[in-house]
Simulated scan of single mutants.
Amino acid sequence: MHQCAKEEKVRVIACGAIAREIIAICKANRLGHIDLQCLPAIWHAYPEKITPGVENAIAEARAEGIERIFVGYADCGTGGLLDALCAREGVQRIEGPHCYSFFAGNAAFAENDDDVTSFFLTDFLARQFAAFVIEPLGLDRHPQLKPMYFGNYRKLVYLSQLEDENLKRKAKEAADYLGLEYEYRFTGYGDLTSALTRL
């Protein structure tokens, strides 16, 4: 856990894939009351684990006497189960269907109607492309599956939180590996900043 000073805590239960961004926002905005607990980033590939994991983390926070809780996940493939949990527990989560949307800004993301044929990377996924895309899909062992997984995509869109030439290069390499066009969009932290500063 990373505690970004002392006041009444708000426990933010978040995906480990956005931990770096949450910590940066906390530091930049002096959000010392935010107490961050990250769940495994690999659940990005196994969304059925997210809702039970968040439920356990909420129970742990309450057992510690922390009542102010915020869920740092979008729906993230839970099919509404995470929203149902948040409603039962009386906690809020960040708005949006997934992190690509809230990093881009949910309103802006919804306006890009060509994105149905786009495969997205964030800074985290650009850094961890092999561990979070290639290996979970088995492409390291069965590269012939690439057309099955990615044949309906036209381009890879890198939604970048930081201007970083090394990450741009990695994202371009990922696009080349998948045989997709490459598009770069700098988003910064998008709606994540406003969601956290409102706490």
Rank of each mutant, 00 (worst) to 15 (best):
K155R: 15
L81S: 10
R93P: 07
A110R: 12
F129R: 01
E89W: 05
V54N: 08
E95F: 13
D75V: 00
P97E: 13
A87L: 10
R127S: 13
C99I: 00
V91C: 10
E67M: 08
H142T: 08
Y153R: 06
R127Q: 15
L85Y: 12
G151C: 01
R127A: 15
V116P: 00
P136S: 03
D123I: 01
S118L: 11
N112P: 01
E95M: 11
Q144W: 14
G96V: 04
L159C: 09
R154D: 13
V54R: 01
D123H: 04
R141E: 10
A61D: 02
I58W: 05
E165K: 15
L145E: 11
F124Y: 15
M148R: 15
E64K: 14
E64G: 07
A107G: 02
F132C: 11
F109W: 12
N152P: 06
I66L: 08
R93C: 08
M148T: 14
G105N: 03
C99D: 04
G138S: 07
N166G: 15
R62S: 05
P147Y: 11
K146W: 07
F132H: 13
A59I: 07
E135W: 07
A87Q: 12
A107N: 07
D140V: 03
T78K: 02
I134E: 14
P143Q: 11
G72P: 05
C99Q: 04
L125M: 13
G138K: 04
C76E: 00
R68A: 12
L81D: 12
G77M: 13
F103A: 00
H142I: 01
E165F: 06
P147S: 02
V133C: 00
Y153S: 05
G72N: 03
E95L: 14
G138F: 04
D83F: 00
G105S: 06
M148S: 08
D83R: 11
E64V: 00
E67H: 12
A126V: 09
F150H: 03
G65W: 03
D115F: 14
Q161G: 11
I58T: 10
P97W: 04
R93D: 08
L137A: 05
A126Y: 13
G90K: 10
V133N: 09
I66M: 03
E111Y: 01
R141Y: 01
V71T: 04
L159F: 08
E64A: 14
E163G: 09
L137N: 08
V133D: 05
L162W: 11
E95R: 15
K155N: 11
C99Y: 02
T122R: 07
